[in-house]
């Protein structure tokens, strides 16, 4: 039986991961441990003297936000460097397109793999949060799906952005001026109600904020600003338009 073409490209990505997983697993574990130690326990001990947000210990409140932020970083990263490698550094996109695979297959296989990576990262993250005693396991696992969705909502547009980039400097700008500010100001570390009034609606437009609302809702049962379906819809639309735009831009770039 024929293997769907996108799955064959997925297989290539998985193959490459077999060479790199050791390094990647270490950072996947180490990152949440460091953040939860420094922010959750360290900073948290200060915050909790005033009473944590929503009446929760700061560590507990923070952890799902960190999960969403980690998913954002993974998603954005997977939409950036591997895509640049596919187009320019290694040119494995061109190599694949000389075979029966089409741009569509490559793009779908790419996002399939990104989904798998996000799943791994989110599950590990939840495991670490659970080990810190900041969530019970089932509620934590309930946040995996929203986290994957956050990651995809970033991977989609970032892939489309990278597809049109001539030089890789555009990638560091994206992270410096896009991803890092989102990480700091989208309600991960403090509720956006703490921001100056004029910034609050702006924060509510950022995709990460929708994701943070969802992961806190899923893991802690906290109320969301809008109905959860609205937050989900925002992220799905971002992802879907990213996929579509990635196909358009990669076709323009590679099929000339």
């Amino acid at each position: 039986m024929a293997t769907p073409a996108a799955l064959r490209f997925f297989e290539r990505q998985a193959r490459v991961y077999r060479h790199t997983w050791r390094g990647s697993v270490v950072s996947t574990f180490v990152q949440p441990v460091f953040y939860l130690l420094a922010m959750g326990l360290g900073l948290g001990s200060l915050v909790d003297r005033q009473g944590g947000p929503e009446g929760l210990p700061y560590l507990v409140w923070l952890a799902p936000g960190l999960l969403a932020a980690a998913a954002m970083q993974t998603g954005a990263g997977e939409g950036a460097w591997p895509v640049m490698a596919g187009i320019r550094w290694v040119k494995f996109y061109q190599a694949a397109l000389a075979t029966p695979l089409t741009v569509r297959d490559v793009v779908l296989g790419h996002f399939g793999w990104v989904t798998a990576r996000l799943g791994m990262v989110a599950v590990v993250y939840v495991g670490v949060i659970w080990a810190f005693g900041a969530v019970d396991l089932l509620s934590g696992l309930a946040a995996v799906l929203p986290a994957v969705l956050v990651g995809l909502a970033f991977a989609g547009p970032v892939t489309a952005y990278t597809a049109g980039l001539e030089r890789e400097t555009g990638l560091s700008s994206l992270f410096r001026f896009g991803i890092v500010p989102l990480f700091l100001f989208s309600g991960t570390f403090f509720p956006i109600s703490q921001l100056p009034g004029w910034l609050q609606p702006l924060a509510a437009f950022t995709p990460l904020w929708h994701g943070v609302e969802l992961t806190r809702w899923a893991a802690l049962g906290l109320p969301t600003a809008f109905p959860p379906a609205v937050h989900v819809a925002v992220l799905v639309v971002l992802f879907a338009s990213g996929v579509w735009l990635s196909m358009v831009r990669l076709t323009r770039r590679l099929v000339v």
């Binding site: 290539r12 193959r15 490459v16 060479h19 490698a85 290694v90 040119k91 494995f92 061109q94 190599a95 000389a98």
Partner: peptide
Amino acid sequence: VPQEDNLDTEL
């Protein structure tokens, strides 16, 4: 066999 090598250097 393209003019410019595009072997997969990650494999």
